[in-house]
Design a protein around this nucleic acid. Sequence first.
DNA 1: CATGAATGAGTCTTCATTCAT
DNA 2: GATGAATGAAGACTCATTCAT
Lengths: 222, 222, 222, 222
Amino acid sequence: MSTTAAALKPRKSPVQARSVATIEALHIAAIQVLTKEGLSRCTTTRIAARAGMSVGSLYQYYPHRDALLAAVLEQHLGGVAAAVERACSEHRGTPVSEMASALVTAYLAVKLRNSAESKALYAVAEGRGGAALVARGRRRMVAAMTAMLASAPDAHFDDPAMTGMVLFSVLAGPVRLLLEGHAPAGFEARLKEQLILLVTAFLNAHRLRQENPGRMAAALLP
Amino acid sequence: MSTTAAALKPRKSPVQARSVATIEALHIAAIQVLTKEGLSRCTTTRIAARAGMSVGSLYQYYPHRDALLAAVLEQHLGGVAAAVERACSEHRGTPVSEMASALVTAYLAVKLRNSAESKALYAVAEGRGGAALVARGRRRMVAAMTAMLASAPDAHFDDPAMTGMVLFSVLAGPVRLLLEGHAPAGFEARLKEQLILLVTAFLNAHRLRQENPGRMAAALLP
Amino acid sequence: MSTTAAALKPRKSPVQARSVATIEALHIAAIQVLTKEGLSRCTTTRIAARAGMSVGSLYQYYPHRDALLAAVLEQHLGGVAAAVERACSEHRGTPVSEMASALVTAYLAVKLRNSAESKALYAVAEGRGGAALVARGRRRMVAAMTAMLASAPDAHFDDPAMTGMVLFSVLAGPVRLLLEGHAPAGFEARLKEQLILLVTAFLNAHRLRQENPGRMAAALLP
Amino acid sequence: MSTTAAALKPRKSPVQARSVATIEALHIAAIQVLTKEGLSRCTTTRIAARAGMSVGSLYQYYPHRDALLAAVLEQHLGGVAAAVERACSEHRGTPVSEMASALVTAYLAVKLRNSAESKALYAVAEGRGGAALVARGRRRMVAAMTAMLASAPDAHFDDPAMTGMVLFSVLAGPVRLLLEGHAPAGFEARLKEQLILLVTAFLNAHRLRQENPGRMAAALLP
DNA sequence: CATGAATGAGTCTTCATTCAT
DNA sequence: GATGAATGAAGACTCATTCAT
């Protein structure tokens, strides 16, 4: 991922069934190679080999190595964003605590469903071309969260977009830590509860401020 | 960063003043090249050129390209960890709200002091060799946070290590978002306040539970 | 054109009308691709696509890429040679000045009729396989010119073959210059007259030598 | 030679003696490979191998394959142009017949001195990048010829630039024919005399027109 | 010690050609 | 017959690393 975001699109639209299968195989292979070898050793030849085809075939579907990686990343981000959007739209108008738990649950679920994929793609996301895609996915999710927050019956957010952004990145941080595998054994098990606690507390901080700006100090400080 | 973590140490300890200066120049050059060209185009020749020396000289100080990058990353992480440790040890025994604000302040300050460096090194951190270093730095910070939390007079943490871990990654997420430059204009300005709010709320959630497990529900839910 | 001259013939003789049309389409497409992309990017796939067919079909008509290019070149050279032969045979026995103007006129006419084709094929002619074809075409033209010259009533050529050869290449040089497009604006307009002047003068030099070998010096030198 | 004329310059100026030798070796090797294998098989690896070095070294001196070929072509054209310029400037003010013979002699001499080089470079000249260089060399030569012609004491040229252009291409045609090796045995031997005759006649045609426009017809036609 | 030229393995990418559908 | 996906050899170019000067 070191190309400008332009022209990272696939070469042919997968109209035929065979194409769909081939592209799917390439995506899977890319993630496997990425996982096993790392981004810098994730070469077109290796991807093709693992996908059981020749390099030439890979280039029949993608004009660049980066276009392939971008497609994989995009697909992943699309799935994650869709899940988040779904959760957010389903929980509009609910109390913030419910929002918090729904959001955490949904985000953790998608990211952990294919944890290998999630983990492998962090490296891709780092590259020039990847950053733009990540930004787009994030924008979708932040927008969804923002909309959900704005609909909360029991809290008011002065700047819901800002809160949405913080919310998103607050989820992203711990999940990345978890996925990168450097977390201790019990981490995953307890993460969900902690995140729900965290997000609930964060959103409720706004609730308290709304109800009684003065009371917040009372509630939060000794 | 595509080598196994072993043998990433500099070749000669910088006993002489000249060495120190040279190594410093290399580190700065590495970050500049990293920023301008990206990890894959961050070559030894380019780094050496920007540092005003020849490739050969670079190899006098580092056995590998990866050893150089690792050293830069390590230095950065060391600085960040040290700052966090300092803040944590200075705020042991203070109320959690003070801890929250001190921690957020310190972490944001170090990461944003040399934001170019921070940003550039995310790519290095992603690599095989980088992950281990990052893990080590994180361990230091989490340990410091854990110790600080355990000393809180106004809160009790059942699993302070877990809370420390969440705390750390909750800070890391938004800061990464900020550094990666995809945040909107006002983000940086408001981030600190939001993070303090967030962390305070999170830690206070434990305080409330401690004081009166039953009351938490009362405080957090409508 | 990088194959040895052997086996550059089309695969099937175009007996059917469809074949003729297909082959014609391929030739046209080849010249277009050659013009737009250059020899090295003039691939079989691109030619076929531009001709509105699949690569496979191309290979139904030509065993090689080079066979196709050779055929195009050959066709072109055939046309040029035929035009020159016609002009030469029609002007046998005429005075050299008439020969000169007829030859120049005919040669310029054919080469400029499809100047895109003429220009595009220079690159093909340069290749291994092309040189032989070019040589053959040239031989035909030189032979025609030689025969015409030998029939001149008002001049005698000691070595008409030699003169024919020079004649041919003297025409080829300026025309190539013109076609390659690096000639200034007025060049084409004035070229014909200049070439007629040139060729007439050249052939007349032989006439003068014949009439009075001594006088040539008188006529040519001050 | 399929690149736009930009950025075909060598990478490092040959300051050191070793560099000069290396570059010279590359030029010679390029011509040899070009001669033996043809342009399409004239690969960087082959050139480097024949020059007794590795590909990497080649790329230390030239950023592209095309830059190398362009440099070889440029050097060749520079030599040819210089020789023509010298001949032209040395024969300013002389009678046209003397100009004719000096020019033909000089041009043949340079082109035949390294006939292998001359021949090999026709293919390079055909490419996109080559055409521009050829045009430049031609411009130099045409300018020199034009200036010489304008200084003729015994002839007047209405459009000396046009005449210069024709003159140049009239020399280029036969010499190319000769170099391409498809000329019969005696061709080279007799070419010089024929070209002098041709050019003299061509230039004298202008002389006659000048002296007595009416007489030209008388002299040229029966 | 510094230098920077040389090395050559390793990447990406293209393209002629084949062949199953 | 037509199609166009698959193949894989081959080419351009890069870069970490070494070592003679």
